Computed example of a mutant assay.
Amino acid sequence: MAGKVVLHYFNGRGKMESIRWLLTVAEVEFDEVHLTTRDQYKKLLSDGDLMFQQVPMVEIDGMKLIQTKAILNYIAEKYNLHGKDIKDRVMINMYSEGLMDLMEMIMLLPFTKDPKPKLDNIQAKATERYLPVFEKVLSGQIYLVGGKLSVADVLLLECTLMLEEIFVGILGGFPNVKAFQGRMTMIPAIDSFLKPGSKRKPKPDDQYVKSVMEVFDLKSLPF
């Protein structure tokens, strides 16, 4: 029998947070090993655990997986959160990758020398490019694809919560998305994850940025 899932990443959101969300929705217990020193990272490299010298890395089912999309797809497939057929899956993947593009822009903000222009760009893209897509598809639908909960729904909830942390009221013009968010937060596993004391990570702070820069030996903000 495979052991408990183990996540190797910083003690913060970043690209691992979507994986935490999906495992939570799938009701999978996981442990975390937080990277706090460069030596930890160098040991993962020397042990051959990071195929492309990148984290996040997830130990699951006797494998050491990297690349966020691959990890999410594996978990979604394993726990029936990836649609009923190939047509469902391609729609789920399109929605998911769009959401990950938007969330990645948000993830980079703490590492940005001048975040103001990037904030303006994120808000514009969120309201003009991304949210209208989900507002339309959620008209009369409970979930995004096939009437069934999928990884895309989980990512949409995560993304909208991230947006609201930065842009209060951003969902005001998107009532279907806001209603969807409300439905998702009533799922027991999600309700628990949103409460204090869960494994959900807070917004990135200076300590998180400092830890990432030390592990990767960065001398100044990269963006």
Rank of each mutant, 00 (worst) to 15 (best):
K178H: 07
Y74V: 02
D153E: 03
F193M: 05
A152G: 00
Q207M: 14
V151M: 03
R13A: 05
L102T: 02
D49G: 08
E27H: 12
F111M: 08
D61A: 04
P110S: 12
S18V: 05
L144F: 07
K203S: 08
R129D: 10
K118W: 10
I71L: 13
R129T: 09
Y74W: 12
K210V: 00
P202L: 08
V5N: 02
C159M: 15
F180S: 12
V58L: 12
V28L: 14
K178S: 08
L163K: 14
S96K: 12
Q53A: 15
K201Q: 15
K87D: 06
D114W: 02
F10G: 03
V151H: 00
V177E: 05
I75S: 00
W21T: 09
D31E: 13
H34L: 05
Y9I: 03
L99S: 09
V55T: 06
K87M: 06
L171R: 06
M63C: 13
M16S: 12
V58Q: 07
S46N: 10
G173M: 06
M91Q: 11
N176H: 13
V215M: 07
G14S: 15
T68Y: 10
L81T: 04
M162G: 05
G140E: 10
L155R: 06
L194S: 02
N176E: 03
V168N: 14
K4H: 09
T185Q: 15
E164W: 09
G173A: 11
G146T: 01
Q54R: 15
G172M: 04
V168D: 11
K219Q: 11
L44N: 02
K15D: 09
K118Q: 09
V168S: 13
I19E: 01
S96E: 13
I92M: 03
Q67W: 11
V58D: 07
M107H: 12
V209D: 04
Q67D: 10
D47G: 09
